[in-house]
Design a protein around this nucleic acid. Structure first.
Length: 272
DNA sequence: AGCAGCCTGTCA
DNA sequence: TGACAGGCTGCT
């Protein structure tokens, strides 16, 4: 599941391959993968050049000339690859041909991801970026504490809420909660200033370490060159049910929080 | 607030 | 063969 570190790895590997390139052709194989619709998407992109790349949370943003944008949200299994040919020919929902002979392939086995053409900045703000909180890596400790500490519900739900902060998904929520020694079920309003500061640092360190290791390839994540990441080998609790906690040796437990598998150490992550 | 629906490959 | 994986929207 691509989260902030994985999307940033895609952005970094994508940027040198697409910056300054013009889009010479667009082919849509699965119309639902593109917004607002296949015709508007292809017409909007056609002839434009890619002038910038950016990322907010899990959203990949390509800046185009004439003030337009294209965004890519990979959701569960989306992949972006730039190459002469698609390394795997199945599940290719869109192909964007560049003026150097390479193509940007969008591949997505489960068809949850979306590519969105935005004619201007307002369409970007009101569309893909609407209701999205600050990027998880841009959020300073003080603002993090204010945002997270004021929310009701369970702590893990707050970390996953893209309106509060953008970029954290199931893997990095579980991993950073373990690193901070906090229960996924904790009441955010009951956390001390120290708890919130520890959680902020744990989240930041987890995201940055994952980024350094090219992301977590738990299912089929790969960067724009088709390379897998290695951070899955450093996971402390995520999908390690029954295996020993790397800190205390107690078996990792799995529960369901907000409909998602949640992995934690019952000894290191006490409820408050 | 909570959950069905979107999807399909993987695993029990 | 059926349960499970889960980001996000939209419905109740």
């Amino acid at each position: 599941m691509p989260e902030l570190p994985e999307v940033e790895c895609v952005r970094r590997t994508l940027e040198p391959a697409v910056l300054g390139r013009a889009i010479v052709a667009v082919q849509i194989n699965y119309a639902k993968a593109v917004l607002p619709d296949a015709r508007a998407f292809a017409d909007g992109l056609g002839g434009k050049s890619i002038t910038a790349t950016a990322r907010h949370g899990k959203l990949l943003i390509l800046g185009l000339d004439q003030g337009a944008f294209m965004t890519i949200h990979l959701r569960m299994t989306g992949q972006v690859i730039v190459a002469d040919q698609a390394p795997q020919a199945d599940h290719i929902h869109a192909r964007i041909d560049l003026d150097d002979g390479q193509s940007l392939f969008y591949r997505d086995m489960r068809k949850f991801g979306r590519l969105n053409y935005c004619p201007d900045a307002q369409a970007l703000q009101n569309g893909p970026l609407a209701n999205m909180g600050p990027d998880a890596l841009e959020l300073e400790a003080e603002a993090f504490a204010t945002l997270v500490g004021a929310r009701g519900g369970k702590l893990k739900n707050v970390l996953l809420d893209q309106r509060v902060l953008a970029g954290v998904g199931n893997i990095y929520a579980d991993e950073s909660l373990h690193r901070a020694g906090l229960s996924p079920l904790a009441d955010p309003r009951a956390l001390s200033a120290d708890d919130l500061d520890r959680l902020h640092r744990a989240l930041r360190q987890t995201l940055l370490e994952a980024l350094e290791q090219g992301g977590s390839s738990v299912r089929n994540f790969m960067d724009a060159h088709g390379r897998a990441g290695t951070f899955q080998h450093s996971h402390r609790v995520y999908r390690r049910t029954g295996q020993p906690c790397p800190v205390c040796g107690q078996p990792v437990e799995r529960i369901v929080v907000a409909g998602r598998g949640t992995h934690f150490c019952p000894a290191c992550q006490e409820k408050c």
